[in-house]
Each structure stands twice: as C-alpha cells, then as structure tokens.
Amino acid sequence: MIAPKTILLDKGNLVITSDSPQFLEYCSLQHFTTKNIMQAQSLDQNSLVFSFSDCAAKKTFYLARLTAKKRCVFFPIHVFENTINNALYSLECFLKSDITQALMEQRKALELINCKSPLTLTGPSTQSTVNVLSSAVSYAMLDGDLQDNFVHSAAEFFEVHLAHMKPQTACPFTVNGEFRVSGILTVLRKAQSAPPDITNSLTTLIGEVASKQASLKVEGNKVTSFTVDNRDYADLIKRAAGKRGAHLTEFAIGVNQAIAPIIDFSINSQMNEGVSGVHVAVGDGTNGYHIDFLCPDVVVRKALT
C-alpha cells in the first residue's frame, strides 16, 4: 500500500497554488511554498490548488493537460463558500487528515455498498434504511488511483458515494427514514442560476443547522421534512434544489474520522462532507443547488435477514 500522506503532504515539497493573493500570503506566513495559478505555466508535481473563481478552475485543468508529472489535489472554493476562511479551514482539515486510513475505510465502505444487500443506518435520532440496486455503480478512490499522475478533488479522498445525476435514469438507491443532521453543505456551479433570496436563506440555514437540533425525514428518496429548532425548511430545500426538487441525488459514506475533533459545520467547506458517518443530498449543483445533509456518528450495517 502506498502512503499518500507522505507523498502529498511533505511540507518541504508541497506547493500551495491559488488565484487569491491574500490566501497565498497567509500560506507564505505558514512557510508554505506558494504560486499564483493565473501566472503558472504548469502544475507542480506535489500541489494543492485552491480556486476562488471559475477562471482559476479552468486554468487548473488546462495546465493539468499540459503537465506530464503531477500529483495535485483540487479545492473548488468558489462553488462552496468563497472566502479566505473556508480555504484556510479546508487546508487545515486536509493536512490533519489520515489519507492512508481513509483509503482503507473507503475499501470497507465500498464492499458494504457493493454487497447490494439492504443497509441499516443507526445513530443518535437516526433510524433509516438504504436499498441499493444490483446495477448500481459506486464511486470510490482506491490505492491504484494514486499510483500515477493525477488531479483529484479533495472530496474524493474521503467518501464512497452513489449518485443519481440523470433524472431520466433509475435511482441506484432508495432511502427511507429519519436522520439527525449536524450540518449542511451547499454547492452551486452557476451563481446566476439561484435567486439571491434563496442564496441568503441557505447561508443563514447553514449557521442554524450547525448550532441547533436538525432532523431530516426521507420517504422513498423524497425529503418530506427538514426541521431546525421545530421550524420546517422542506419548502426552501425544494426550491433551492431547482429542477430536481426534494428528490435525493446522492447517498454517501464518509471515512475521514481524523478531522472529527476540528470539524466546523458553520463553514460551507467541501471537507465537511467527508467526515465519518453518512450524508444524503438533493439537487445537482447546476440547475439549482446541490445540498448535502451531513450526519456524522451514523453506523452503516447490512440489514439482518
């Protein structure tokens, strides 16, 4: 087994790359080597890229095609919470992650999902079931994905998931039950596709969920209620998700136990969705928001037969 933590996180060779001069200045003060992606001619072999704009994201993948030797982890800050605080928090979480352990846990989660048996999800105020279609294809990162040159999104290191991104196809999973939700994560790839009032309401909701009791109910893959401090936000969730409405588009198992002590659900960070436990989501992030409901401390088991 390879040791990605050693390969990727050697601070003597790690290069922090971004289009934000302020973020790069913070990183320089922490003694990281830094580079502005908009001025770069190639990707460094051992780099973390933080994009604060769509232009920077496009430049990253343009350079990836030109760079033969690259081991790059990509953080699309601009489609989550486009702030320096988010970038610094995401960097801290990634550096404190145990990637080798996460890959081992991904393999276990993949085997569990691929058994295609009904699954039970249990935890504090959580009791749910998940049925997986025999034709379902799970997405996970395995050791072989890190053997050669790569550019991977940070989230890929820390979750195994089933996605239903094409509404005309059958959903590969069916979820029923109730979840205690500790945080939500919102993703929007086209800022102009959501009205400002919805964006502002979701920003407020992120803080509410992080500080108060939240409960999600799902029936036949459809969100029927999402209550925070006894107020139901199901209608907001449905409107924010756009064309896909209240129907689930993702079921995932997180594997990043190492960041549990520092997790901050009030920050809309991509790193939060990988924390151990599960998350389910609505929306596709393009025709409206993709919204993850984050449920740490949930245990996934094969259902007893």
Rank of each mutant, 00 (worst) to 15 (best):
V223D: 01
E208A: 14
F75M: 04
K35D: 06
F157C: 13
S193H: 12
R231Q: 03
A303E: 15
V255H: 07
L119I: 09
F94K: 02
P261Y: 06
N131V: 07
A234C: 15
P124C: 08
D232M: 07
T249Y: 05
H78L: 10
G220W: 02
E178W: 01
S53E: 03
N221T: 00
S276K: 12
N268D: 01
S97W: 09
S20C: 05
D292N: 15
D297Q: 06
A155W: 04
Q147P: 13
E105S: 14
D54V: 15
F23I: 02
Q101I: 05
N256M: 04
V278L: 12
A303N: 09
G123H: 06
C27F: 06
T122Y: 03
I267F: 01
G123I: 11
P261H: 08
D145M: 12
G183V: 05
T34D: 00
V282M: 12
I184R: 01
V79W: 06
G254R: 07
A214Y: 07
G207Q: 11
V15N: 05
L162I: 00
K222S: 07
K190E: 11
L91R: 10
S215I: 15
P76W: 02
F158Q: 14
I206Q: 02
D148S: 13
V209H: 08
M141H: 08
L205M: 13
V130C: 04
V73N: 03
A40I: 08
D145V: 02
N149L: 04
Q30N: 08
A260K: 14
V49S: 03
L95N: 03
D10V: 00
I263R: 01
S18M: 00
K96G: 06
N176K: 14
N36R: 06
S18E: 01
Q30P: 02
D292I: 12
S90A: 12
S182T: 09
S28A: 12
N230A: 15
N287H: 09
L142D: 04
R189E: 05
N221V: 01
A136S: 14
Q30D: 10
E178C: 14
Y289V: 01
F80Q: 03
D10H: 06
L162M: 09
D232Y: 01
A154W: 01
V209F: 02
V278E: 07
P76R: 02
S134G: 13
K70P: 14
G254E: 08
S28C: 03
G220H: 13
T17E: 11
N131R: 11
N272T: 07
V160A: 04
A64P: 11
D292T: 13
N256D: 02
A210G: 06
F61Q: 09
G254A: 13
T174E: 08
C72W: 00
Q127Y: 05
C27R: 05
V223Y: 04
Q127R: 10
S269A: 10
G177S: 00
A191G: 01
A56D: 12
M271P: 05
T186L: 00
